[in-house]
C-alpha cells in the first residue's frame, strides 16, 4: 500500500492569553485503504488532530501531505476545494441540513463540485442512499429519521464526491448499540471493499477493534503505550 496522508511534526497551539497546545509534534503516515482509529482520553487532542488531518484547521507548525501534495501554505479556498473533492466528513451529531431531505443533503456536495449533471447527481445520491439501506427514506427530512438513519445519510453525504479519505469524529458516539454496529460495518466495508481510507476518532473499543490500526493520543502526543481500557487484555 502507498502512503496517502503524511504528517510531519504537526503542532497546533491556540493563541489564547495563556497559549494552549492541542496537538504536539505529531508525525504519522496513513496508507490508501487503511482504517485508522484515533483513541485517547477526553481532551487528549483527538478531534484537533482529525481537523488538522482533514484540512479544517491549519497547524501552527509542521507539514502535511495529502495524496502526494503538500498542503502547507494553501489558502482557505484551496483547502476547501481539496476537502470538497478528496475528503468526506462524518461527525458525532449527524449535522445534516434540517430543511433539506436526505436526498438533497447527499446531493449538496456534488452540486457544489458541479462535475456531474443534475440527473447524474440525483442518480448517484439515490444509489448511495440505496447502498446504505436508506432508499425508502430519501425524501424524508432529518427530523423524520432515527439517529442511526441520520448517520447513514451523513455517511452517504461524505461519500458523495467519491473522496479518498473519510474522516469520522466519533460517528457512533450518539448511537445505540445496533446502529453503532451498523455504522461500524459500513465504514469497515468502505475500507475493505471500496479502498477508502478511514480515519476515525472514537471512544468505543468495539468500534476501534474494527480498525486496521489504532493510534493512542495522550496530551496531544502519540503514545504507543496507551491502550483503551476496553481493549486491555
Amino acid at each position: 500500500m502507498t502512503t496517502l496522508l503524511k504528517a510531519q511534526s504537526l503542532v497546533r497551539t491556540l493563541p489564547l492569553t495563556v497559549p494552549v497546545t492541542l496537538v504536539q509534534d505529531i508525525s504519522l503516515e496513513i496508507d490508501h485503504g487503511e482504517f485508522v482509529a484515533i483513541m485517547g482520553p477526553s481532551g487528549s487532542g483527538k478531534s484537533s488532530l482529525l481537523y488538522l488531518l482533514g484540512l479544517l484547521d491549519i497547524p501552527t507548525s509542521g507539514r502535511l501531505w495529502l495524496d502526494g501534495q503538500e498542503t502547507s501554505g494553501f489558502d482557505e479556498d484551496t483547502l476547501a476545494d481539496i476537502r470538497l473533492s478528496k475528503l468526506g466528513f462524518v461527525f458525532q451529531f449527524h449535522f445534516l441540513l434540517a430543511e433539506f431531505t436526505a436526498l438533497d443533503n447527499v446531493m449538496l456536495p456534488m452540486r457544489k463540485l458541479a462535475k456531474l449533471s443534475e440527473l447524474q447527481i440525483q442518480q448517484r445520491a439515490e444509489q448511495l442512499l440505496k447502498d446504505l439501506g436508506m432508499a425508502d427514506h430519501r425524501h424524508k427530512r432529518p427530523d423524520q429519521l432515527s439517529g442511526g438513519q441520520r448517520q447513514r445519510v451523513a455517511i452517504a453525504r461524505a461519500l458523495a464526491n467519491d473522496p479518498l479519505i473519510i474522516l469520522a469524529d466519533e460517528p457512533t458516539g450518539n448511537l445505540d448499540s445496533v446502529s453503532s454496529a451498523n455504522v461500524k460495518e459500513i465504514l469497515r466495508d468502505l475500507a475493505t471493499h471500496q479502498g477508502k481510507t478511514i480515519i476515525t476518532v472514537t471512544h468505543d473499543p468495539v468500534f476501534a477493534k474494527a480498525a486496521d490500526r489504532r493510534i493512542g493520543l495522550v496530551d496531544g502526543r502519540i503514545d504507543d503505550q496507551w491502550v483503551h481500557p476496553g481493549l486491555q487484555k
Binding site: 476547501a80 476537502r83 461527525f91 457544489k112
Partner: peptide
C-alpha cells in the same frame, strides 16, 4: 452557524 460550519467543512468557500 452549525450548518455554515458543515458546509464549509464540505468545501464551501466563505464567498459561497
Amino acid at each position: 452557524t452549525r450548518d455554515i460550519a458543515i458546509m464549509k467543512s464540505m468545501g464551501f468557500h466563505a464567498s459561497d
